[in-house]
């Protein structure tokens, strides 16, 4: 019997290594797996590369990773925002490298990794600073920039509910990067607020099929709230 459900957040991230690349779902706080990130901080892994839309705001989630100085590099589209002070301080001190990627290219490069593509030609960013030095090509009269997939060792994803095979459904706009990150990482770890029996999720409505998921952990705080 296959059961992808693990007993705790700590167990879910136990095999993290220093230097790992980690995709983290979320658009701001919506869909950010704050409890899994807490477990990463408690684990102690450092020198991490974080791939996410934002670079953390306030005091929890990616901001807490920044504050703990565990991050060597951030690949994201929108690091600077109100209350991104922990990232800002590390960046200005030269302690964290930033690869700024237009949001749609971030999504497309993550999708390319999950789909096994070698590269993509994207129109976004052509003629701008963010495409400087990159190969370009004109195809049918439109200009494109060559961009490579973004892979990761781990994806940390927040979903609403899962079954023991790792099938997932999400909640509202907390879905955001979850489904595409789940496809792109070697190991995908999902925190959910509800675990259901096999067959309880409508196969027509499953957003992420379990093939893309390695571990599921219940966020018991959310489950009892």
């Amino acid at each position: 019997m296959i059961n992808k459900i693990v007993g705790s957040m700590a167990e879910a991230v136990a095999d993290l290594k220093d230097g790992a690349s980690i995709m983290i779902s979320g658009f701001g706080d919506a869909g950010a797996p704050a409890e899994l990130i807490e477990a990463v901080i408690a684990h102690g892994a450092t020198d991490l590369t974080i791939i996410s839309n934002n670079a953390g705001a306030g005091e929890v989630g990616i901001a807490a990773l920044m504050k703990a100085n565990r991050v060597r590099k951030v690949i994201c589209s929108f690091p600077r925002q109100a209350a991104s002070h922990h990232f800002d301080a590390r960046y200005r001190a030269g302690e964290v490298e930033l690869e700024l990627v237009p949001q749609g290219n971030l999504a497309a490069r993550i999708e390319a990794a999950g789909a096994g593509l070698g590269a993509i030609f994207t129109p976004t960013g052509f003629g701008t600073l963010l495409a400087e030095g990159k190969e370009t090509r004109e195809i049918d009269g439109r200009n494109y920039v060559l961009e490579y997939p973004i892979h990761a060792d781990f994806a940390l994803v927040k979903a609403r509910a899962a079954d023991r095979w790792g099938n997932l459904v999400y909640r509202k706009v907390a879905r955001n990067f979850g489904p595409i990150m789940a496809m792109a990482a070697k190991t995908t770890i999902v925190q959910v607020s509800e675990i259901v029996e096999l067959g309880d999720l409508d196969p027509e409505a499953i957003v992420t099929p379990g093939i893309f998921v390695n571990r599921v952990v219940l966020n018991s705080a959310a489950a009892t709230a």
Partner: peptide, 30 residues
Amino acid sequence: WELINAGKQPVTILAGGAYFHHGDSFAMMR
């Protein structure tokens, strides 16, 4: 707070509205 706009302000969804992931969202633009 799981129903926000790009500016991270709370919004609502109309009857007939839909949710989708970031790949689809930016495919709509690109």
